[in-house]
Design a binder for these strands. Structure first.
Lengths: 158, 158
DNA sequence: CGTTTATTGATACTTCGTATTAAATTTTGT
DNA sequence: ACAAAATTTAATACGAAGTATCAATAAACG
């Protein structure tokens, strides 16, 4: 990272710098990896991609960076399928919204959440300062509604 | 669990039965443990409480039950502080809303979310059937705003 | 009450994430 | 541009969280 000009930094990297953290190779590469993988990634996937991009970067640095990114609200760990390792989603501009199909675990992202009003209300009522949010809906996607039920709760004729 | 009448079951237990699962001791005790602990619990806390309530119940059953409850939308694992083990929240009537303070990791629950409208819109637009949601806001609580900054991002005068 | 079938409990095991510390790299002041 | 100061890193060994396995058990339902 040789004296790169700040106008060329991604929003996430800017965030890191503005929060007072150094822009090290490990951090830049981890963020690249997540962005290349497109979000909703496990730590294992990040580890794999990182060591493909820069084999010298160690395990610990990857985990440390994921922690740091989480604390800064740049990514957010979330459970897509139960009891698996968490998946990190990119919080673009502090927020993220998706639907998880409880039948096939597919995720569908969407943009509009209409949460500004309630955020404002909460800030006033509770005297908090809100910087982001994660909204997850659970349900059954179109495909799964149409297909033969795979889950116990839906098969009632043995 | 000897032939208990269904009218005495908690909503969660009813949910389990209606989904076709047996009401075993392990499942009943795990749910009791979570309710006694009041939600936002780690698996370690559940394990501890369960073995206090019923020492015969094994590790694996507790984890299996947490998985099952998650799949049924009765609880939802969520990350309060980064890189810690997840915390399970009770999804009362399919939904849960809270604010997480990114400074002290305290959580504040709230009730009104005003998400019915967008849920309906999504159901129509994407042809999905939604059964619940989790809404998390991130920010800084009143106490932390008033206190001396503990986090790097806030200390700019060394 | 007895049959069927899902579920359990015990343990050993795998895997994920962490602590530690000397070495390296970025930043900052000049 | 350079050197000093401070933060961050890589490597490895370690600990804890969650899982697979399978014989034994208990729930449901007639």
């Amino acid at each position: 990272m040789h004296h790169e000009k700040s106008r060329h930094l991604s929003p996430s990297l800017l965030r890191l710098r503005q929060a007072g953290y150094k822009l090290t190779e490990a951090r830049v590469v981890v963020l690249n990896a997540i962005e290349q993988l497109g979000g909703h990634v496990t730590s294992a996937q990040v580890l794999e991609r990182v060591s493909a991009l820069a084999p010298n970067i160690g395990r610990a640095s990857v985990f440390r960076t994921l922690d740091l990114l989480t604390r800064l609200g740049i990514v957010r760990p979330t459970y897509i399928d139960s009891s698996a390792t968490p998946r990190y989603v990119l919080m673009r501009d502090g927020h993220h919204h998706h639907i998880i199909c409880t039948s096939c675990n597919k995720t569908i992202e969407f943009e509009d959440c209409g949460l500004d009003a309630i955020a404002k209300t909460l800030e006033e009522r509770l005297n908090v300062k809100l910087t982001g949010h994660l909204l997850e809906f659970f349900g059954v996607c179109a495909t799964c509604q149409a297909s033969i039920p795979l889950h116990k709760e839906e098969r009632n004729n043995p």
